[in-house]
């Protein structure tokens, strides 16, 4: 996930300062990991260094002084390029659950117990997300990001179900190797 480009995207809406950018990010992408202010600050400085953003001015409306940034033409081009680029579909399979199952077999512990517990945790998380999604007055952005996570958790669960059903074969295969 490119914080650079997301900040450029937020700046495309008009000049704004670091704190405002963080707030807007968290609003726009509900359920995402919240941006740390420090990260926003360093990323903005890198954008300025690379000529993608520049200082627009300073605000001091009744509080501490804040630097306002705006996107440059170069920045707009970079943003358009990034937004049109295809995200590589799963170039590497990173599956921590699978790694744990294999390690459990290697260590001769019971992978089925782990899978059952993991399954329950996944379901619990899905219930939470669904509750967020179905609460009255939820905006579409929240629904959509919850849906994204739900679909992925669902995929994990289905994978866990088929894996649990085939643990005997997997154990034999891992042990044989």
């Amino acid at each position: 996930m490119s914080t650079r480009h997301i900040l450029l995207g937020l700046l495309a809406g008009g000049p704004s300062h670091g704190y405002d950018l963080k707030r807007r990010h968290d609003e726009r992408f509900p359920q995402a990991r919240p941006l740390a202010y420090g990260q926003v600050y360093t990323t903005l400085q890198r954008l300025v260094r690379d000529g993608l953003a520049e200082v627009d001015g300073t605000d001091s409306a009744g509080g501490p002084e804040r630097t306002r940034y705006r996107s440059t033409d170069e920045g707009a081009r970079e943003l358009a390029k990034w937004a049109g680029e295809i995200t590589p579909p799963a170039p590497f399979v990173t599956n921590e659950i699978f790694a744990k199952v294999v390690c459990a077999i290697l260590a001769s512990t019971e992978p089925a117990d782990y899978l059952r517990a993991q399954r329950a945790a996944h379901m619990e998380r899905m219930r939470q997300l669904t509750a967020v999604k179905t609460a009255t007055g939820t905006d579409l952005a929240t629904v959509l990001s919850a849906d994204y996570a739900l679909s992925h958790l669902d995929a994990d669960l289905r994978w866990m179900n088929t894996t649990a059903a085939r643990l005997t074969t997997l154990t034999a295969e891992v042990d044989a190797a």
Partner: peptide
Amino acid sequence: LVHTVRETGTTVLLITHDHQVAAYAD
């Protein structure tokens, strides 16, 4: 369904093979 039964306090037994549907349950 969920909105309605929460309002009315109706108890629901939901049979499903779909995890995303099951996640609507308590």
